[in-house]
């Protein structure tokens, strides 16, 4: 019954307007980047072309106007994260429907099924549009192209140093296409964990206005960006979550995701134990 409950909740979340809006916004980013890239590189020789996997919207330099669109994506990302699954969870608690669900499977099972559904729904919504872009780029651009958007040639001594700083650099060296897919899945996983962190607050706290539930993840992500202005650029979340980022990384950051997930699990357990008073 637990997994059935998770499946029902995932299906319900995916049909909600929040999921559809988020998916469409992310798809819009993808499509505008793709269309602009097609227009920019139309007719170019394959020798001067940028590698198709470096034209992705998640790459800071992935396109002609990508700096602007990339910055919009980074700004709205913390606001989009809770929309597909966390806000419906919050509304379920506000309306009291959570009590009817808890009456069917128990408070603890309901809380954990909700956490799992938040993880899966967010992962799907934040991964699929970008996987679509990988497919579109593979179809539309020459797979033999090797260029880099920063203009660094593959025989340039700076190139291996840059590549070595990528997360999963070994995978990139083996196959840039597999690297792109894995990085996209990693981006989806990180998004899911950030959303789960937000969901932890829904389990434990009750706010009158649903907008306040965006504050935990918004404050956390912006704090990492603000800190990077002071701490030599190694803390901003997008240096770790996005592909093709050659900035120096702090290995301690790998603990952040498991810690956030642990907080989500502990808060959910606490919330699940509480009385369903409404």
């Amino acid at each position: 019954m637990f997994f059935r409950s998770v499946a029902v909740q995932i299906r319900s979340c995916l049909k909600q307007s929040g999921s559809i809006i988020t998916f469409l916004i992310l798809l819009a980013f993808v499509l505008q980047n793709f269309i602009l890239n097609v227009q920019t590189y139309q007719g170019d020789d394959v020798l001067s072309m940028v590698h198709p996997m470096k034209l992705l919207v998640l790459n800071e330099f992935g396109g002609y106007l990508n700096i602007e669109m990339f910055s919009v994506l980074l700004q709205v990302y913390p606001l989009l994260l809770p929309l597909p699954a966390v806000i419906p969870y919050a509304k379920e608690r506000q309306t009291g429907e959570s009590i009817l669900l808890a009456a069917r499977i128990g408070g603890m099972r309901y809380a954990f099924s909700r956490l799992l559904s938040v993880l899966v729904t967010t992962f799907i919504i934040f991964t699929v549009p970008f996987l679509i872009e990988i497919g579109l780029n593979c179809i539309s651009f020459p797979l033999e192209a090797q260029g880099d958007p920063l203009g660094i040639g593959i025989y340039d001594p700076k190139y291996p140093e840059m590549v070595r700083r990528y997360l999963f650099s070994g995978l990139y060296i083996r196959s840039p296409y597999l690297y792109a897919v894995v990085e996209t899945l990693f981006w989806g996983l990180c998004s899911a964990i950030f959303a789960a962190f937000s969901a932890a607050f829904v389990a434990v706290f009750r706010f009158k206005f649903t907008v306040f539930y965006l504050l935990p993840v918004y404050l956390f992500l912006n704090a990492t960006t603000l800190l990077s202005a002071k701490v030599a650029g190694t803390t901003a979340w997008y240096y770790y979550v996005l592909p093709y980022n050659e900035r120096l990384k702090n290995p301690a950051y790998l603990w952040v995701l498991p810690i956030l997930l642990l907080i989500a699990v502990l808060a959910t357990a606490r919330g699940g134990r509480r009385d369903c008073i409404g």
Partner: peptide
């Protein structure tokens, strides 16, 4: 729209305006 959607709409608008600075 409800508080969340309204904040999202305003934030997206502001984000686009900030991004236009790059132009």
């Amino acid at each position: 729209l409800g508080s969340y959607n309204a904040t999202l709409a305003a934030a997206v608008l502001q984000a686009v305006c900030i991004a236009l600075l790059g132009l």
